[in-house]
Amino acid sequence: MRKIDKIILHCSATKEGQHFTAEDIDRWHRARGFAKIGYHHVVYLDGSVHKGRDESLIGAHCLGHNATSIGVCYIGGLDEKNNPKDTRTQAQKEALTGLLDNLKVRYPNAKVYGHNEFAAKACPCFDVKKEFR
Rank of each mutant, 00 (worst) to 15 (best):
K81M: 13
S69D: 06
K93R: 15
K81P: 01
Q18P: 03
C11Q: 05
D5Q: 11
A31G: 11
G77W: 00
H41W: 11
K85A: 14
A13T: 09
N83F: 12
G52F: 07
G59M: 02
H115P: 01
G38W: 00
I7R: 06
K130H: 10
V72H: 07
R133D: 08
C62R: 09
G38S: 11
G64R: 15
I58F: 01
G77K: 00
F34R: 13
L78D: 10
K36I: 03
H61M: 08
R27Y: 00
N83A: 14
A13P: 01
Y113G: 09
R32S: 12
A110W: 00
K6T: 10
D101H: 05
A60Q: 13
A119V: 15
T14A: 04
A122F: 09
H40A: 05
G47L: 07
F132C: 03
R106I: 04
K111F: 00
D127W: 11
R32H: 10
C11I: 01
H50F: 03
A22H: 00
G114M: 08
K36Q: 14
R30H: 09
A35G: 10
K130E: 13
G47K: 07
I7T: 01
E23K: 13
R53W: 07
E80N: 14
H10M: 02
L78F: 08
A122Q: 06
A35R: 14
V42T: 06
I58Q: 05
G64S: 15
H65T: 03
H29Q: 10
V128L: 02
P108N: 12
H50R: 13
G71E: 03
S56A: 15
A95S: 12
F34P: 00
H40N: 14
G59E: 06
D5C: 10
I7H: 01
I4E: 02
C73R: 11
